Amino acid sequence: MQYKNLGRSGLKVSQLSYGAWVSFGNQLDVKEAKSLLQCCRDHGVNFFDNAEVYANGRAEEIMGQAIRELGWKRSDIVVSTKIFWGGSGPNDKGLSRKHVVEGTKASLKRLDMEYVDVLYCHRPDSSTPIEETVRAMNYVIDKGWAFYWGTSEWSAQQITEAWGVAERLDLVGPIVEQPEYNLLSRHKVESEFLPLYSNYGLGLTTWSPLASGVLTGKYNNKVIPSDSRFSLENYKNLANRSLVDDVLKKVEGLKPIADELGVPLSQLAIAWCAANPNVSSVITGATKESQIQENMKAIDVIPRLTPAVMESIEAVVQSKPKRPESYR
C-alpha cells in the first residue's frame, strides 16, 4: 500500500480506503464488519470513512464497536465522519453551529472515540452562512474532537468562500473535499476544482470509483444480482438511472483493455481513479472479504497505466471534461 498526504496537510492516508456507506447497518453487522475491517488493515488500509446519516447512525456504532473489539491502536488508523443529516428535528440537520457541535458529539458517542481525524460537512447548507460553519468546524478542532475538516459535494465556489472566511479570520480552512469520481463522473475533479489544488492545497478522498458497481461489468446484461447494492429497495432508482445502454456500452468497451492487462475491470477502474495525482485516497466499498482482496490489487495496476493505456481508456469512455481556458 502507498500512503499519500491528505492535500497539503501532514496527515497520511492509504491510497485506497474503506467506506461504510450502504454496507454497515444495512447489509452487515459487527461480526462481518470486523472481518472486513481486518482484511483492509491486512492490506495496509489505514483510512476508514463514515457519516452520521449512514444507516441512521448504526454504521458509526458498528464501526466503533468493531474497531474496539479488534483492539486496534487508535493512532494507527485515520477515521472520518460527516455531518449534515442527523435526524428529523429542525436543528438536527444542516451546518448550523448548533448541529455541527451536537452532531459531532453524537457521532463520537456512537463511534465510542474521543476524536475523529477528519470531519466533513456532508453537503453545502444554503440556509447557514458559510462563516458560521467555518467558525463551528474550527471550534470542533479547538476542542480536539477532530484534527482536520473538509467538505463533501461542495462546489469550487463554496470551498473558495470557506477558505476566504478562514483566511480573513485566521482560522483553519477545509483541507479536503469528498466528491464522486470515476470514469463516468469527472467534471468536478478534473475541471471545476483545478484552481483549488494549487491555491489551497486541497486534497480529495473520492467515492464511488466503480459507479455503484456499474464499472465492474456485473450489470452488463441488466440482470441485478440478489446480493448487489442495486437489489436493495433504497437503490432501485439509482439502478434505473445508471443501467442505461450508453453507459453499459462504454463498460463493455473497457473490458478488452482490462483483459489485455490481465486484470478485472474493477481493478482497472479503481486504479484509474487512484492514478490522478490530486486524489489522496479512493474510498472503496465491499460486503465480502473477496471483494476487498480484489479491490486492493488495484494498487499494482496503477504503475501499468501508461499514457497509451490511458488514451485507450479515454477513447472508449470519451468523458474527459473540457479544461477551463485559463488552465490549458
Rank of each mutant, 00 (worst) to 15 (best):
S185P: 00
V309K: 05
E161D: 15
S281Y: 03
K82P: 09
S126K: 13
N276F: 10
G10H: 10
K143R: 13
T151P: 02
N56H: 12
N199E: 13
H43E: 11
I257H: 03
S242Y: 14
W272F: 08
M1W: 04
V78C: 13
R323D: 02
P209V: 09
V100T: 01
S319M: 13
L183M: 15
D245Q: 15
K73N: 14
W21G: 01
M296D: 02
Q38M: 14
E32M: 04
R168M: 04
A211I: 04
R229A: 04
E177A: 12
K236F: 11
M113Y: 09
I299S: 09
T284P: 04
W145Y: 15
A51S: 15
S185I: 10
D76K: 12
N26A: 10
F24R: 01
V176M: 07
D92N: 12
L36D: 03
T306P: 05
S9Q: 03
D117W: 02
K188V: 03
S126Q: 12
V116R: 02
E60H: 07
F48Q: 06
L265M: 01
L184R: 03
N91V: 00
E314Q: 14
S319W: 02
I224P: 03
S212Y: 13
N91A: 06
N46E: 07
S290D: 12
L243Q: 05
R323P: 00
E132Q: 09
K250F: 09
P174I: 04
C121A: 15
V22N: 09
W163M: 11
R58K: 15
N237W: 11
S96D: 06
A274E: 08
K255Q: 14
S226G: 00
I313H: 10
K105N: 13
I257M: 07
K82S: 10
L232D: 11
S326L: 09
D117K: 00
N295G: 01
V100S: 01
T128Q: 06
S312G: 06
G64D: 11
G253E: 10
V317C: 05
K73H: 12
S312E: 15
E32A: 14
K4H: 14
I302E: 03
H43G: 00
R74G: 05
T128Y: 01
I130A: 05
D259G: 09
A211V: 06
W21I: 02
I67F: 15
V189Y: 04
I224N: 08
A258F: 09
P209S: 10
M310P: 03
K34A: 06
G262W: 06
W145V: 07
L196P: 05
Q318A: 13
I302Q: 05
P179R: 10
E167W: 00
P324D: 07
Y327W: 14
L232F: 07
V140S: 05
R41Q: 13
N50K: 05
V13P: 01
N138R: 01
E180Q: 15
P264N: 07
R8G: 12
W163G: 04
K297M: 11
N182W: 07
M113Q: 12
K288H: 14
H122A: 12
